[in-house]
């Protein structure tokens, strides 16, 4: 710190200089955030409130005379066995996939966190599936799951076993979709974990090595605390993403058999575009929004508490 001696006149001038608080906010600065705000309001806030309003209407896709129905659509939803089934299916799907995304994503990142060529090639391969469209992914997995000549059936037959009917069994259909989904987008959590791992200073591991710390000890005491925030991001991102399951279920099983793999988004799609019942579809969308918000917030608060501890 350097001591500066000011002449009395200059000191007075410095004290009197106006501050931001005294002249008020500069509204022209809002221009910098205006484009984002406009899109945010038009594409997110407005549809959100429009959706809430629609969920309280008895509204047909091509009928311009919607009628206010209050909470009737919600009442109908809570008595709809198919919808209740889709809620359980979706929650079960999230429970099946999110921990696997975190565990396998982290394992792959740890295994491929190296600068050699093999690791780079493997990183590209594992991430490669993420760029495929859902249509391609489901075609590939249909060929895998086909009970007659599918790849998995062929392996079963090779060992003299009866092929398993993955996508036509009510107990396995959702598991089959989960496996397909994990294969498809495991690359993203892996990449996020890799980015976090590469931010950890190497000196920490060197110090741990000097202290004779085991690999497990280093992972538990250095790696995991250092990537806690990324872990939280991955968990919340995957919860939000997997609650929106649609394409894989629609193309692999069409929600069947016996409603065993129909997710909430497919229900919304069918009610909106097939039955033309927009109010009912909007009500189901609001329920999905609430479930996602609650799940993500719960995860956020639990994780933040742990980080603070």
């Amino acid at each position: 710190m350097t001591d500066v001696t000011l002449s009395p006149g200059k000191a007075v001038a410095a004290v009197k200089r106006p501050t931001g608080a005294s002249i008020g906010p500069r509204w022209s600065n809002a221009l910098f955030v205006a484009p984002y705000l406009v899109f945010y309001v038009v594409l997110l806030v407005y549809p959100l409130f429009k959706g809430i309003w629609m969920s309280m209407l008895e509204s047909d896709m091509f009928d311009n005379t919607s009628k206010f129905a209050g909470l009737a659509n919600y009442h109908r939803l809570f008595n709809d066995k198919i919808f209740i089934g889709t809620v359980w299916n979706t929650v079960w799907f999230v429970v099946m996939t999110v921990p696997v995304f975190v565990a396998i994503g982290l394992l792959l990142a740890l295994a491929l966190n190296s600068s050699d060529r093999t690791a780079a090639a493997l990183r590209a391969i594992f991430f490669g599936t993420s760029v495929l469209s859902v249509t391609i992914v489901t075609i590939i997995w249909k060929m895998m799951y086909m009970p007659g000549n599918g790849a998995i059936a062929s392996i079963f037959k090779l060992f003299g076993l009866q092929p398993v009917a993955f996508i036509t069994s009510s107990s396995l259909a959702l598991v089959a979709i989960a496996i397909c989904t994990i294969w498809w987008i495991i690359g993203l959590p892996m990449m996020l974990f890799l980015a976090a791992l590469q931010q950890i200073p190497g000196e920490l591991y060197e110090a741990a090595a000097l202290d004779n710390a085991s690999r497990w000890r280093s992972f538990w005491s250095i790696t995991l605390p250092s990537i806690k925030r990324t872990l939280l991001v991955v968990v919340i991102y995957e919860i939000v993403a997997q609650f929106q399951l649609f394409g894989q279920a629609q193309l692999l099983t069409q929600g069947g058999p016996n409603n065993a793999s129909r997710p909430i988004v497919q229900f919304i799609y069918e009610q909106g575009f097939r039955s033309w019942n927009l109010g009912y579809a909007a009500a189901a969308s609001e329920i999905l929004f609430l479930i996602m918000a609650v799940a993500a917030l719960a995860q956020f608060f639990v994780s933040r508490k742990r980080v603070e501890e």
């Binding site: 036509t168 009510s170 069947g256 058999p257 016996n258 409603n259 065993a260 097939r274 039955s275």
Partner: peptide
Amino acid sequence: KRQFSIQEIEGEEVGSAMRGDK
């Protein structure tokens, strides 16, 4: 009305009966 939607529902439920899911 909604004959295709009806056929979808009917098919799903008859399928559940045929396959022994219900």
